[in-house]
Design a protein around this nucleic acid. Sequence first.
RNA 1: GGAGAGGUGGCCGAGUGGUCGAUGGCGGCGGUCUUGAAAACCGCUGUACCCGGAAGGGUACCGGGGGUUCGAAUCCCUCCCUCUCCGCCA
Length: 428
Amino acid sequence: MLDPVFLRDHLPALRTALQHRGVDLGADLDALLALETERKRLIPGIEGLKREQNAAGEEAGRARREGRDITAIQDASRERAQRIKQLSAELDAVEERRQRGLLTIPNVPHSSVPVGRSAADNVEVRRHGTPRPFSFTPQAHWDLGPALGIIDFERGTKIAGARFTVLVGAGARMARALIDFMLDLHTRDHGYTEVEPPFMANSAALTGTGNLPKFEADLFKIAGEWDLFMVPTAEVPLTNMHREEILDGRMLPIRYTAYTPCFRSEAGSYGADVRGLIRQHQFDKVELMAFSAPAESYNELERLTGHAEEVLKRLDLPYRTVLLCTGDMGFASAKTYDIEVWLPSQNTFREISSCSNTEAFQARRASIKYRQPGGKPDFVHTLNGSGLAVGRTLIAVMENYQQADGSVVVPDALRPYMRGLEIIGPPK
RNA sequence: GGAGAGGUGGCCGAGUGGUCGAUGGCGGCGGUCUUGAAAACCGCUGUACCCGGAAGGGUACCGGGGGUUCGAAUCCCUCCCUCUCCGCCA
């Protein structure tokens, strides 16, 4: 959520920043500013009347004890109560529109974010590893998987429909191994606390992260009288761990990691990545999440991104890290790094992680504050990143470690998690 | 699914229409005392918003929302949550 004070004091700068994101909110911002002014006009009047009302109530109590007549006080109070009611209704309407406005405006990009319109304007910041040379034409995972009997697209469709997939045998086991491997890495080596959260979240939680009210179409909603949605990412439950809390500043940073399945309707993505495991309605992910003191949050973003990259380093998968431009960032983010893994069959890098600092954007929506000893409460900064998307990591392993005969070598780092299995060969 | 009990400040726990943001205790902070610590004693100790340069002042909040009333933590309605017993179940 936008800081109302920032809106009031930096309207031109805000307008420019949002233009850089490719959204035109000119009129919205003016309307919002007008609501802000209207709000500040109404509040002092209402509070003044309430003050009078309180004094009258006190006086009535005193008068009644002393046996004096209070009908005059009652009449005046009754009338005042009506005026308060009327003005409050006006204020409520203003507050509601103001709130709705504040909730639908995206975050302001950090000054270090390159200005650009699309993914083409993103900036590669580093690259790690070298794609393996192949003496044959590397196959896509959607050919390798079914041939090895470890991915079954047809049965996924039979059970749930398009964009659902069944992993079988060594495929299912490798997904589980990846989850285990990632969680161990982040808890043991990177200092995160493991969490297993609910896989559904309510509308308050989703509003806190920024998924609601604007992006309900991307979510799977539970039918019936439930205020519940399937989580689109563990970012939602993890960020909401401390919603409406004031944290002890000495506990920061707080770092959580969680494995969850993620559910996305992928509305509006018809035709994109229809083959294979790249874009599914359900996928597994290990998430990294941090609550940081504001002054430290950009250092924390670098650390968190490094923690996600470490997964690929240990699996010996080539990748590059890209700084997203203003036009390609998500709604809640002030700065985002995407990590892209090499996929030989596509001869390109594909996104496998997205690491963002939302600054106080989510903290303001979800009311997540911290307080240093003796200090005033202030909003924390929240950060999140994939560490990593499991399905896409599985794809990357299969494609990068494939051999001429269609078998797949198990990366060294994963073997302890797969009872020493060294190679996944075709079914006998 | 059925029956019942309950949600008050960081925690415990009073308060059932009138100076109640709310008695008391615990915890925390500061001070006195002490060689030091403990104990004892004294003081302070919530959040949000509004006005104000500040000092300070005001309004709201006793699970959420609505209502009754001159006036509500206290009465009414409704929703949410927690606990206990039964049933069911991983």
